[in-house]
Structure formats: C-alpha cells, structure tokens
Design a protein around this nucleic acid. Structure first.
Lengths: 371, 371
DNA sequence: TTTTTTCCCGTGTACGAACACGAAAATTTA
DNA sequence: TAAATTTTCGTGTTCGTACACGGGAAAAAA
C-alpha cells in the first residue's frame, strides 16, 4: 500500500516525461495529415500570407490534436533573429563595487544566450548626477533595443524614461528597486522592508541592551527609496516588540571624502551609548574602518552585501552579519526574464523577490561563488 | 579621469560582447580558410575517420585563431542524440516530504532540456531498506543510462554500485551527501560540518545560558554520515569558545512511531535543564509538536529544511531557525552538471557546495518559491 | 606496369523551422 | 471567351552541424 503511494509521488509522474520527450512532432507531420504543403501550415502558424478559412481551421485542429510544439532549436537556428537588450545601471566606483555584481550575472546569461543571437548594449550613469541618467536613457531610446534592464535610481527621471519606453513599446525590467505599476515586465530585487525587519531581529538578538544607530551612506535619500524601506522595517522590529530595551537613532552621511563624518559618528556613539550599528547599504566597510581605529569591540554591526571589504570585516568579527541579496543572480535573472518573454514569448512572473540571505563568518564562503 | 575609469569597468568590457556575439564562425569558414572540405574539418573536430597529420594541424591552428565554438543549436539539431539520465533518490513519505524537493528541481531542468532530447528515468528506494537500494541500482545498470544522479545513502551498497558504474563508464553525480574520491563527476550538497557550526553559533546567540540537546531522528546513523558531520560542527562551535556556558547532550531517536520517544526526550529536557534543541535533519517538526504539547516557550529550537510543517512551527515561533540548503536548486544543478558534461562535453566543477541559508520567520517567505 | 590496399578527403543529405518566390486555381473584369 | 486580378498554396533554399558513402591519390604488393 505504502509503496504504491510512494510510486505515485515520485516515479509515476516522470514516466510521463519519457513518453512526452520521445515524440517530436514536426510541421511536416501536420502538413501530411492535413493533405497540404508545409508552406501552408507555416502560414497558418505564423499568420502570414493568406490561407483559406477552411484549411486554416483544419490545420489548427490537427495542431491541437497532435499537441505540436515548435522545436526551438530549429526555430532560432533558421530565423536568425537577434534581440538586443540594453542595460542601464549605476557606474561602480571600482571593479569591486556593488554594481559590478549584477553585471557579472548579466554577462553570464548573455554568454549563454550567444547561440540565440541575443546581444547586449550596456549603459551606465553616475549615481551623483541625475543628468547622466537622462543622457544615457536617451541613448537607449535612440538605439531602440528589444528590451531594457534598468535600476530606477532617480524616480522623476525614471518615470519620464518609462513613458517613452511604453510609447515605443519596449519592454523593461526593474532591478534592485522598483516603481509600482508603470508597465514593467517584472521586478527583480529584494523586499527592502522585510530585509530591514530581519536586520532588526538579528541585531536585537545579539545585543542584550544598549542603543542602536542606523546609518545611511547616501547623497540624496529620496533617490534611494529602498534605504528608507529598510530603515522602516528595522524600526518596526523594535516598535512591535513588547518591552523593548533599545533606543534607536538615525544618521545620514552624504559625504565620505574627508574624515568629518567619522568625528560625527564617533561622537554620536559615545554620547548616545551606542552598542549596535545598522548600515542600510553596502557601505558598511566605512564603519568597519572606523571601529577598527577606535578599537572598540563591544559594538555589533550589521550591514548589506558581500563586497570584498565587507567580507573582510565579517571575517575579522568587526561586522557580525551581512544581509545579502545575490546581486549576480539578480542580473542573471533580469536578462533571463527578457529572454523568456521577448525571444521565447513566454509568460513570466511580475515579481521576483530575491531571498534575504543572512550571512555570517561561518557561512560566507558558500555565498561567494556565483554558479 | 574618473569617468574613464568607470568606462573601463563597465562599458568597455561589454562592447566586446557585442562584437563577439555578432560573428558566428562556421565550420565552413574554417574549411575555406584551410583550403579543405567541410568533411575534413568535421573529422578533425570529432576525431573520426583519418586525416593527414599536416592538415589536421593546420585546421586546429585555424580553429584556435578564429576561436571557433560549435553552434549548439545546430549541433544538437543535427545529431539528434538523446541522453538518458537516471536518478536514484529516497522515496518521500508524502508529496510534502523532503526528497520531493530535489526532484522538483530535477523535473524543471528536464523540461527545459526537452528540446535537447534529454530524458530522465527516475528510481527511488526505501530509506529503511538497503535492499531496495540494491534492487533499484541494478535496474539502473540494466538500463545503461548516459548519466546517473544519486544519493549515496547506504555507504557499502553505494560503493558497490559505483564500482559497476565505473566499469560501465557511466558518469554519476552525488547529491545531498558524498563519498570522497570514487570517480564522481561532481557533488552537489551542503558542507555539513560547516552548517553545524552555523547552527551552533545561532543557538548560542539566542540562549544566554542553559543546556543544549542535539537530536538525531534517524534509523541508522552510519548511513547518514552528514548528520554526524553536522553534530560535529555544532559541538565544535562550543568547544572552540572561550568561557562556554552551555553543556551539550546528544540523543538518537530511531523510531517515532509511538509516543515512547516523546517521554524519553521530555524527561531529558527536565533532568538536564535543556534550554536549546538542535535537530540535525528535517524532522524538527517532531520537536515542534512535542513542545507545543508541553507548552514550554522558553526552549529555543533550530533544525533543518523548509518542510511545510517546519515552516509552520517557524511562523509560530516554536522553532527559531531553520537551516536550509535549497534542495530544489540542488536537483536542478545535478541534472545540469550531467547535461553540461555529457551532452555539451564541457568541463565542470568537482564540487558544488550549496549555500548554508539561515531562515527565520521574517525571511522565510522569500525562500519558498523556486524560480 | 598493373593490381591491390591503405590512406585521405569531397559530396550529399538530414535535422526542423523560416521565409521568399512564384505557380496554380478561383474570381473578377473587359 | 480571353485577359486581368485576386486568392490560395507548393517548392526550394537557408541556418550550422552531423554523418554516411564513395571516389581519388598514394603507397604497397603483384
């Protein structure tokens, strides 16, 4: 009895695959069965040329019956159609920068899709100049790509860009952050609010008491909506807790060029008796450097993203947790969404929230490689 | 100056892709350049027939020069070779069982590879009967598949199976657990020891003091080497800690049919003043049920794998952490390894350690879907 | 020198779909 | 009734690779 049940669960369903896989119905088979030529079937399937209504019906019926699925290999081989995708991402300050990571994933998928004739044209903008975003986005519109992946970093400028994309009927996918309901094919990224909650829980767990400092390293906060969301989630963790022993403070650092910001934070740490720090983005290594200088090991730190420098501080126990969102995977998935929708014409999911990975010294090694 | 640097990082490298992608070098191009026929180049590339040493050299040189890569589409289309892969996994007790998850990933990859003529023939064995493992493995040898994915659950029996696979020159991939250096193509799974360390750290973090109980739910421990490894990592976390406040106990439960095991554990919890429990596999829901009955909320629990029932206890705050290893992804990757090596004849990595994911109530929702 | 054998290599067809070209049949117009 | 149109459909080539078959040249044997 039991074994029958088991069999149903695992073995039966797959036998189907074997059978399904064996028969490849060709357009020729349909033609023969309908007593027409291949060309006629072709016209019916692609809505080109003219076909008598009666034969069209007959053919479609047979297509249904035989459950015909075109062979993608032969199809793309013959058509030689090549899609061009454009990407618009912030410029990473160096090869180690965060924004190089999604790009690694993008490259990987593009290389895999080379055979399908998919090409990519990357554009980058300067995170501190909305103007560069506009300039580059106009270049994209000029290029008229078949699809676009971009990070809607500057909201106002992005909305304008989107309007034009919609007018030109160019599908697009958001990566990293999103604008709701503006016609995007999909969004690839993290649920920022929820990741803030996770950060809150973790930091709460490791500091029994003492106050907490939330730090934004960002020029203009309104452009970085997801940093605000993360902060909100973080605060909410403590708000929703009965008998909360921590007090929270927030601090925005717009400029990290000199050492002015260090003084500011240092002072705040002492004055407010800070025992825990949450950095809302990948710039947590700044705090790592600071704490190393101060030589204070009783302050716990949590931040985002597996930048090389961040990982170093994680391994040195200066940073306790890094929240990570698998940016390479995001880039990979973004291109894949475009490919599946535009080239393969499949229906795809509107949202694709990346997992919120909790990374510590002990499991970091298994996050580093991107496969 | 800066912008030049940026350009180098992101924009330049990709322009190359565009160029690379454009030119598809055909075997015909090589033939023309070498002043030979297509057939000759074909023979050189596939080591078939006989070709004069001199022309062979000449052709290979041109292949290098032009950086020729065969068009997989055309190749598989023309060859019509279809690989058959076999899988040998434990039978899941129900559709919700753990071992259904890797299988979901396997199915997904198989569906994607249907066009490539890849087929799958699944076999399952009973976790409590090594004999069923032997029977099924013999069926596989009879089938003579082009590749095998299996979980070496019973060590002795697996070794025998492997010997025969090697003799028949059938490549195989381990999933979930591994036997070292027996000729496997690859291993897909977690680093059990390291995941034990992570569990130790987490449990240590959330219980300031009190003793800890490690529970194995398994019939025969020697078959489940990775459970032992997890335990070892767990213990080592506390051993390597200066000033450890916890005492650890281990308990093996071979049979969960009656309620006998519950009494045993209940007694142990009280007698040893247990404040934390670590379950070394996915059976943590048993402890969830027990604790719910006991109505004791001051015991923290950590276990493995996102089974539906486990997730429920996670959401009810009965279980604090679940360590997860993305079993669907593992199944997907296992088939992919076989495909890349056998069909596409690429070189693949010997080991593929899955990430050690830390899952809590707050981020669990982003782990549930498999994309 | 002729025949046989070995060694090289070119040609042709197939895989399944896409698409262009133009021919046959049906219809309308002169 | 013939000519001009329109509607409908069949044939042939192409994509890049795989592979079978057989032909020609060179080397060995007669």
């Amino acid at each position: 009895m039991c074994s029958i049940h088991y069999t149903n669960v695992l073995q039966q369903p797959i036998k189907q695959y074997i059978i399904e896989t064996n028969k490849q119905i060709r357009i020729k088979d349909i033609a023969e069965k309908a007593h027409v030529s291949i060309g006629t079937v072709d016209r019916v399937l692609h809505n080109r040329g003219e076909v008598a209504e009666s034969t069209k019906k007959k053919i479609l019926k047979i297509v249904e019956e035989l459950d015909y699925h075109p062979n993608i290999l032969a199809s793309t081989l013959a058509s030689k159609k090549s899609a061009v995708f454009a990407t618009l991402l912030p410029q990473p300050p160096s090869i180690e920068g965060y924004w190089n990571k999604p790009f690694i994933g993008i490259k990987k998928r593009i290389v895999e899709l080379r055979q399908y004739g998919v090409q990519i044209q990357p554009f980058t903008f300067n995170q501190t100049e909305s103007k560069s975003f506009v300039t580059e986005s106009e270049k994209i519109l000029e290029l008229k790509p078949d699809g676009v992946v971009f990070a809607p970093f500057f909201k106002k400028e992005s909305v304008k860009f989107i309007e034009k994309l919609n007018k030109q009927e160019i599908p697009f996918v958001f990566i990293d952050s999103e604008i709701k309901n503006v016609g995007q094919l999909s969004y690839i990224g993290q649920d920022s609010y929820q990741s803030g909650l996770v950060s809150g829980k973790l930091l709460d767990m490791i500091i029994p008491d003492g106050n907490i400092l939330v730090i934004h390293f960002a020029k203009e906060m309104d452009n970085q909506n997801h940093l605000v969301q993360r902060e909100k989630g973080f605060y909410d963790w403590f708000l929703n807790k009965e008998d909360n022993k921590h007090q929270l403070f927030t601090c925005e650092i717009a400029n990290t060029d000199g050492t002015g910001w260090m003084k500011k934070i240092k002072e705040k740490i002492i004055r407010k008796k800070i025992k825990g720090i949450f950095v809302t983005n990948s710039k947590v290594f700044f705090i790592g450097r600071l704490l190393q200088k101060l030589n204070s090991s009783d302050i716990k730190v949590i931040g985002h993203d597996l930048l090389k420098e961040n990982v170093e501080f994680l391994k040195k126990d200066v940073v306790q947790f890094l929240i990570c969102q698998r940016p390479e995977e995001q880039g990979y998935n973004a291109i894949n969404k475009l490919f599946r929708n535009i080239v393969q014409k499949r229906v795809i999911a509107k949202e694709n929230y990346t997992s919120i990975d909790i990374v510590t010294k002990e499991n970091v090694n298994y996050y580093k490689g991107f496969k």
